[in-house]
Every structure is written in C-alpha cells, then in structure tokens.
Design a protein around this nucleic acid. Structure first.
Lengths: 242, 242
DNA sequence: GGGGAGAGATGCCGC
DNA sequence: GCGGCATTTCTCCCC
C-alpha cells in the first residue's frame, strides 16, 4: 500500500522502490520536458536515482541522477512524487492518477560486469598481434594519454614511418576519421615529422568515412574486435552455437 | 507465482513483466559479458525488449533490444530465462537462484515526450534572433542536410562573409571544433571561397576546445539553449523557482 | 573533480 | 532500410 510513511521508510532503508502507475511527468533541469498521462513503471534505486519507463523502448523516458531527493505527497485523489537534485538543479514532478502497484525491496548486489570485445580489447589485440595491421609493424605504445593525446596505438611500420591507429569496435564513421586526423596532426607537430600514416581499424566503414580516408590519404584496416571472456564456461558458450 | 505458463501467457498478452530476483547473467552478441550472482530487477516490456537493473546506477547492466524472444525454463531448483535476438545474433541467459517477486501488467501509454532546450531549439533560436551571434548576421538556412552536410546554421555576416555556426547545448569540446572545421571546409570547397567564418555557439567551452578554436581562427559565441515548454503551466514553473 | 572519449550506446530524423 | 548525429546521453579512466 502506497502512503507517505511507507514511501519515506523505504527510502530511509535504502530499499529499491518499484511503482506501476498512471501518471503525468514534468521535468526541468538541463532541459525541460512534459509527458501526458500514461501507464509507466517507476524505479527509485538505493542510490536515489529514479527511472521512469514506458511499456516500450529500452531507454527511460524520464529520470533523475543518483543522490536526488524524493518526496511523496497526497493531494486530493492524486499522489505526487517530487524529486529534486540540488547539485544539478534538476526537478521532476510525477503526478500520479492511479497506482497499480507499489513494492519496496532490500536488494544486495555488489557485482560488476565483466565485458569482452571493447575497443580497448581491440587495441590490446593489435598491440600483441601487430601483424594484423601489416607485416613488420612495430607498436610503440597503446592508450597513450600523456604526450600525444588519446591515441589508441602508435608505432613504426617496416619502413620506419610513424603510424597512428584509431580503433572502432563497430563502424568507422566521419567522426572517427576526423579524430584520427587530429591525432596524426598532433604526432606530426610534436615529433616534427612531415609524414605520418593514419590507419582506421574497424570491422565496418561508412561510405562518407571511406571517402574521407581517401581524401586524407589514410588507410582502412578491416579488423573485428576480439570476443573472449575467460569466465565463460564451455557449457555457456555451447548455448548459442547452434 | 512464476512458472513457465504464466510467463508465456504474459508475453503473449504483450504485458510488461517485472521480476525481482537473485541471478547470474551471461551475454553474447556484439560483445560478451558475465555478471556473478546478485539481486536485480528484470523488466520485459511489451515490445519484447528486456532490461536488467542493479540496485544502483541509472543504466541497465544487461539488456536485449526490442523484438527479442524470451523463454523461461525450470531446471532443478533454478529458473532460467533465455533471450535471443535472431536479427542481431544476440543471446542472454539469466540463471535465477531466487525469485523475490513476479508480476505482469497490461500497460497503456502512447504518449511521447515534449522536450525543450535541445540543440535543435538552440539553432531555431539563433535563426530567428540572428543578432545573438553578431550585429547584421543574416542566416540563410538551418539544418542544411542536402548540399553542404549537416550544418546547424549558415549565413552571411554584415560584411557579406560566409558564416558557419555549430551549436552545442552544453559544452563545446574538441570534437565540436573538428566538426565545425569539417563543415567550414565543406562550404569552402562547395562555394569556392577562401574565407569562411566558423562560430561555435555554446554556453560553455573546454580549455582545449578554446585553444583549437584559436588555432583554426574560429570564434566562440557564448549562448545558452532556450528552455521554454509551452505546455508548462505557471504553477509547474513555480515549483522550482525557490 | 574536470577533461576526454567509449558505449553491447539508444533514439531521431532525413533520404 | 541506412546514414549521420544528438543525447537531460551515461560511464569509465586518468590527470
């Protein structure tokens, strides 16, 4: 049963609150939004973040960041949830017309996701298998953050020419090419050399990115990100092999 | 009560399913992931998307896109949810150790969010109030997608020099400057002119972006995105004015 | 805490 | 459908 006392008690206990309601939502903060009445699921997590989910779509339609403050008020026949985040000056008002359900759960979960197949994994793979780029490629560093900017990989090719590689785990688009260009220019000026090879390593490339690569005199290396998670058991792998 | 029949029936009715469980999650698709056991909220929406939320954090820790297929199997003392998306070759396995709750809801909501304060709104504002950029600025077009690429605004200044404006609703960063540079180059080559003014319009700018602007000979216009939603009543506005 | 860049990004709009 | 890009992006990493 939803009432102000239950709501505040659950918040105080750092429970996760799950409400299913018909509501109207207004937001003001980084932007402003209004959402007319409809059925939604509201989750207030133990870190005091709030999510509003419609029956469709994978992103929340409204939300508040962690460490927000939430209050429930009863107003004639309506409930009202007012959430505010002082730090970011954000305000959310949920006008509840009907409550379908309200539950609070004390949930424990400190686990983090192990993920394989990221851009970082791709750079790692190229670093340890430089022949994937070209014969005789000698990588000097990966994830160079300090001297030359945020460059995925750079090194020397068989002719001792400098090579800058930008990795994308899915598709190389115009933004990736301009990013590569920016890094090549940085290396040129900091190393004081005229010619630096730029290589975009990705499994797919968009048409306009392909044209941009040609315009810049850069190269495309068709490479797939590695997918291997140590803790995946053979049984689990077998699940999706048919 | 969770069982295979209830689960499948709820899916068939396009209900929204909400489960609170202790579980282990494995994913394989665009990448691979493993999440050891913990308490989570699982939502399967009426579009057959699936979300897994931990007690903290605003993003789902695992998910499946819309139009996936979901099956519940009972396996000794465990339940198993197997979700697959044939189109994207993605597979999710949720091994459920304990069920805290299971509910299905028939939810109706066809409303869409009205949003104000976006980059598009910013471009609109500058287009109708060109003096925000500089005296005598004459915008020619906004959101020009066809001839010169995706340029927010371009036009002529008081001296009849071409001007390209890139808007950012929050912060201007190096990526925004390279984007602006790309558009300026496009206009230069397509119009066959040597000098085109580039202006980055945003409320804040990062230090390195500021330096890049200077290097390119571009300008910074400090402009805030407009925040005004017609349907916001005065009462709602008053809520966050104290 | 701020800057910089990835994401299993998602969503939107235009062609 | 794909392409290009914004997002109340969010999250992570590193200084």
């Amino acid at each position: 049963m939803l009432d102000s006392d239950n709501f505040q008690l659950a918040l105080k206990k750092n429970d996760v609150l799950v409400l299913v309601v018909n509501c109207v939502i207004d937001y003001d903060g980084r932007a402003q939004s209004h959402l007319p009445s409809g059925d939604r699921i509201i989750i207030i997590k133990s870190d005091k973040s709030l999510l509003v989910h419609q029956p469709k779509g994978s992103s929340p339609i409204n939300y508040m960041k962690a460490h927000s403050q939430h209050e429930l008020a009863k107003n004639d026949n309506q409930f009202l949830i007012e959430s505010k985040n002082q730090e970011f000056k954000e305000y959310l008002t949920i006008t509840i017309n009907k409550v379908y359900s309200f539950n609070a759960y004390n949930l424990k979960d400190d686990e983090k996701l192990e993920l394989a197949g990221t851009e970082r994994d791709m750079a790692e793979m190229i670093y340890t298998h430089p022949e994937l780029i070209c014969k005789g490629f000698k990588p000097l560093s990966k994830e160079e953050h300090t001297k030359y900017g945020f460059i995925d990989i750079f090194g020397y090719d068989a002719n001792n020419e400098l090579v800058v590689i930008e990795c994308k785990r899915y598709i190389g688009d115009p933004k990736a090419v301009t990013q590569l260009w920016r890094y090549v220019e940085k290396i040129k000026s900091s190393k004081g050399v005229k010619k630096v090879r730029g290589i975009l390593a990705c499994p797919k490339i968009s048409p306009s990115a392909k044209k941009m690569l040609e315009d810049f005199g850069f190269e495309y290396a068709k490479i797939n990100p590695p997918k291997y998670l140590e803790k995946f058991s053979k049984k689990q792998k077998a699940l999706h092999e048919f």
